[in-house]
């Protein structure tokens, strides 16, 4: 794992993809739609944040399961740092979404089911941080927080993906609102959207790998041989 963390090709790829996203996202042609107008470009920044968050939380879940399976403290370190960066991306996704909602839906918070569920997801991972902070012993902390991470993830994920689709939503492709189809099928937008998702996810993994390496150096509970 340390080997992959120290390699630079995927970090260069992240920089390249994000530069492309910024340039392409602001300059390429986008479909003209009522109300959305030029704000549609936020799709390249707001939605990839959520994708990145979900991907990082999933990585965190995998490492929590691995920790319970084989009990290596480095797995716990991976779980907590990916969850932290997932939280960062989630907060950014929420903020960019609120700014966008303010211009298109009229106010920053509209009681939209997807918005509510994302806020709940953030609450769960903040609770995870608080739980970790309250246990001093490193192995006990790793074990208990891994259990909470797994339990919370599975109780949240069906609701994050199922409930918003069952009720009316202002978001596209929910409850009879099929707005996303209109512009998702625009191939020009896909050309920027998918690289943006990859770029933000790689950036998130890069930030977490830096934090992990920093803690491996300064935290006496871990040593390099444990990786």
């Amino acid at each position: 794992m340390v080997k992959l963390m120290q390699q630079s090709w995927w970090k260069l790829l992240a920089i390249f993809l994000l530069c492309y996203t910024v340039v392409g996202g602001l300059l390429f042609a986008v479909p003209r739609l009522n109300i959305l107008n030029e704000t549609i470009r936020n799709l390249y920044y707001h939605v990839p944040m959520w994708f990145g968050m979900i991907i990082l939380f999933t990585v965190s879940l995998v490492y929590s399961i691995l920790y319970l399976y084989r009990g290596k403290l480095s797995d716990d370190l991976m779980a907590v740092e990916t969850a932290n960066v997932g939280l960062l991306l989630g907060v950014l996704g929420l903020l960019t979404g609120m700014i966008w909602a303010n211009y298109t839906w009229g106010s920053p918070w509209n009681g939209d089911p997807k918005q509510n569920m994302s806020a709940i997801a953030l609450l769960i991972y903040f609770a995870y941080s608080i739980l970790r902070a309250s246990i001093p012993d490193p192995t006990k902390r790793a074990r208990i927080s891994a259990v909470y991470n797994i339990f919370a993830f599975f109780s949240m994920i069906p609701l994050l993906f199922v409930v918003p689709r069952l009720t009316d939503s202002l978001h596209p492709s929910n409850g009879g609102n099929n707005g996303f189809v209109v512009y998702d099928l625009d191939n020009q937008m896909r050309l920027v959207f998918y690289p943006a998702v990859m770029g933000f996810t790689l950036l998130g993994l890069w930030i977490s790998s830096l934090r992990i390496r920093l803690r491996l150096i300064f935290d006496p509970n871990y040593n390099h041989s444990s990786l």
């Binding site: 709940i120 609450l123 609770a127 739980l131 246990i135 109780s155 949240m156 409930v163």
Partner: peptide
Amino acid sequence: IAAKAGSNQSMLMPILSFPIIIP
């Protein structure tokens, strides 16, 4: 989980369970 966490269980219980129970 809250009982295992040690000193401040009474504070942890609502923090850990409310986000899960909202949906």
